[in-house]
């Protein structure tokens, strides 16, 4: 399977998945789908910066949490409607990305240093959220239940399913547009060899800034969705390291830098997570043990992720014929 086929397969998968909850009556399935779409969108956000651009962030929770808190605070404290809150959240994600991007890329941080600084930014935000009054400190924020499309809440969970699916499809289309654009080509050039790219007239700083802005905005939309779905938020949920880990796991497993990778990775990981939770009798952490093992195995044996596997198979088949 080549990348273009992968993209098409991912889009077809989403189109086919859309009517599924109306065909199969299962709350588990709906929730599973929501979790997959949510993780895939977050993963896609990471993928644009980390997969295509090679800038490994270990702190995508900063964007996710900024989005989540922005919409929650606007709705609770300022009476702003959920739709405006949603768009404000996306903007907030971009603003946080602007700050982190300016700070780290201006100073040429790369590799492990960039990973560490993003992690530190997420931790600073977590501590702030844990301390400030406006974020409800450690107690967190609870949104009142008030179903209605104008409030972005759905009595029927299938509404959330469609919204999550829409976000996932949108992120996929954005990633596809980026991959096929000048920006995408420049991102790959910067990833492969920053000095060479720069010698050829690419401005690495401008390229990385665009990628992180897009990535931050996208991750923030997932945070805003999370708030609408669970109606609860606390500093650990928003800015905890598990969000940052979830953001990078999907694309790494699915195939970093490929458009279809994050969705494929998210689907496989959620499936494995559910299975391991069931096997361990619902023990917390069991799914993360499996994620850790998968991560080590993928890096060791399959550095291109599932997409790399598919590509290698296609090449073997091509060579054989």
């Amino acid at each position: 399977m080549n990348p273009a086929q992968g993209e098409r397969a991912a889009l077809v998968f989403l189109v086919l998945a859309a009517p599924l909850p109306w065909l199969v009556d299962s709350g588990t399935l709906v929730h599973f789908g929501i979790m997959v779409f949510q993780a895939a969108t977050l993963g896609q956000a990471w993928n644009i910066l980390g997969g295509m651009g090679g800038q490994f962030s270990f702190g995508h929770a900063a964007f996710f949490g900024a989005g989540a808190y922005t919409t929650a605070i606007l709705q609770l404290r300022f009476g702003v409607d959920a739709w405006s809150g949603f768009f404000a959240a996306i903007l907030a994600g971009a603003v946080v990305a602007l700050v982190i991007g300016l700070a780290s890329f201006r100073f040429g941080l790369r590799g492990s240093y960039f990973a560490l600084v993003t992690l530190a930014f997420a931790e600073v935000l977590r501590i702030l959220a844990n301390t400030l009054e406006i974020t409800g400190a450690g107690v967190g924020l609870l949104l009142p239940l008030a179903p209605g499309l104008e409030r972005l809440q759905f009595a029927d969970r299938r509404g959330y399913y469609l919204l999550a699916l829409f976000l996932c499809a949108a992120s996929l289309l954005v990633a596809r547009a980026v991959a096929g654009s000048r920006l995408g080509a420049r991102l790959v050039a910067v990833r492969e060899n920053e000095e060479a790219a720069s010698a050829l007239g690419v401005d690495p700083f401008a390229v990385k800034m665009r990628a992180i802005l897009l990535s931050g905005a996208m991750a923030a939309s997932v945070g805003a969705f999370y708030v609408q779905y669970f109606l609860y938020l606390d500093p650990h949920i928003a800015f905890g390291p598990q969000v940052s880990v979830e953001a990078l796991l999907g694309p790494i497993v699915g195939g970093p830098g490929t458009v279809a990778g994050p969705l494929a990775g998210a689907f496989l990981l959620q499936l494995l997570g559910e299975a391991s939770r069931a096997l361990a009798g619902g023990a917390t952490g069991a799914n993360l043990v499996v994620y850790g093992i998968v991560l080590i195995l993928i890096v060791r044996f399959l550095p291109g992720g599932l997409a790399g596997l598919a590509r290698a198979r296609a090449e073997r088949a091509g060579a054989g014929s």
Partner: peptide, 22 residues
Amino acid sequence: RDENVLLVTLGLALVLENLALV
């Protein structure tokens, strides 16, 4: 690759921490 080691040790941390949790 630098990043691969980062990922492997991250995976290791996930495994150890959550095994302890279980």
